[in-house]
C-alpha cells in the first residue's frame, strides 16, 4: 500500500464574501515528499490563495485539504497552529521578521514556540545562520540588514523546526537579481540537503526554472501541471 501524498488539495475552492469573488475554483492537486514545485500565473489568479490553503493559513469554502492523508477540515485553530509549527516553513515576499528581535532571535522563534531549551535553540539558530552565511549578523536587528540578508534570515527561520514542507510566496519579489539568486540557491539547498518539499509562488521565470514541477493557475483554476524531466 503506497503512502498518501504529503498534501492533497481535493476540489478546493475559496470564495471571499465581499463581492462573492471566487479566488480559487475546484483545484485538484497532490504532491509528495521531496518535490520542488512552482505555482505560476498572472497577478490575482489565486496563487497565494492556493498557497495559504496548503499551509493551513486559510480554509477552503468548498472541497478539502489533506495532509498526509488526514482531512484538515475539522482541525481547530490550535491544532492547525501546531501542525504549521511542526510541518511548514513559511517564506514571504516581505520577509516578516520581528523588528524587536535580532536575527538570531528571529530564527529561534519557532523553536521557542515548540518549547525547546534555550541552549539548544541558540545553537540551532547559529547553525542555521551559518548555513545562510549570516553568522556575523546574528545580533543585528532587521532594520540593520539588507533585503537579501533579511530574506536569508527568514529562510533560516523557516528551516528551524526542520519542516517537511517549505512554502515560499514570491520570495525574491523585493530583491535584486543577485540577491534573488542567493535566495533561490538556499531554497534549492534546503530541498536537496534537508529533503524538504518546496512550493514556490512566483512571477519570475528564473525562479520558476528551479522547480521540477510547474503548476499554472488562471482565474482560480489549475490549468497546467507539468513535470520537468
Amino acid at each position: 500500500m503506497s503512502s498518501p501524498p504529503l498534501v492533497h488539495v481535493a476540489g478546493a475552492s475559496r470564495e471571499f464574501p465581499a463581492g462573492k469573488v471566487r479566488a480559487l475554483d475546484s483545484v485538484e492537486l497532490s504532491f509528495g515528499r521531496g518535490e520542488f514545485l512552482s505555482i505560476e500565473g498572472p497577478s490575482g489568479c489565486g496563487k497565494t490563495t492556493l498557497l495559504n490553503l496548503i499551509g493551513l493559513l486559510d480554509r477552503p469554502t468548498a472541497g478539502r485539504i489533506e495532509w498526509a492523508g488526514a482531512d484538515t477540515t475539522g482541525w481547530r485553530e490550535g491544532e492547525r497552529a501546531r501542525r504549521r509549527l511542526e510541518g511548514v516553513g513559511f517564506i514571504f515576499q516581505r520577509f516578516f521578521l520581528l523588528p524587536t528581535m535580532t536575527a538570531r532571535e528571529n530564527v529561534e522563534m519557532p523553536l521557542r514556540a515548540r518549547g525547546r531549551p534555550t541552549a539548544e535553540r541558540r545553537a540551532r539558530a547559529l547553525e542555521l545562520l551559518e548555513e545562510v552565511g549570516l553568522t556575523s549578523r546574528a545580533d543585528a536587528y532587521p532594520h540593520q540588514l539588507s533585503g537579501g540578508e533579511e530574506q536569508r534570515v527568514a529562510i533560516a527561520r523557516s528551516l528551524a523546526n526542520q519542516p517537511p514542507l517549505l512554502l515560499a510566496d514570491e520570495p525574491t519579489g523585493e530583491l535584486d537579481i543577485a540577491h534573488a539568486g542567493e535566495v533561490m540557491d538556499l531554497l534549492q539547498r534546503a530541498h536537496t540537503i534537508h529533503g524538504a518539499t518546496v512550493v514556490v509562488v512566483t512571477h519570475n521565470p528564473d525562479v520558476a526554472a528551479r522547480a521540477r514541477r510547474h503548476l499554472t493557475i488562471r482565474d482560480g483554476r489549475l490549468v497546467r501541471d507539468t513535470a520537468q524531466e
Partner: peptide, 16 residues
C-alpha cells in the same frame, strides 16, 4: 497586526 499574523502563521500557540 502583521507581526501578530506572522507569529500565528509560524504556529506560535495562543497561550504564547
Amino acid at each position: 497586526r502583521s507581526l501578530m499574523a506572522i507569529r500565528r502563521a509560524i504556529g506560535e500557540p495562543a497561550r504564547s
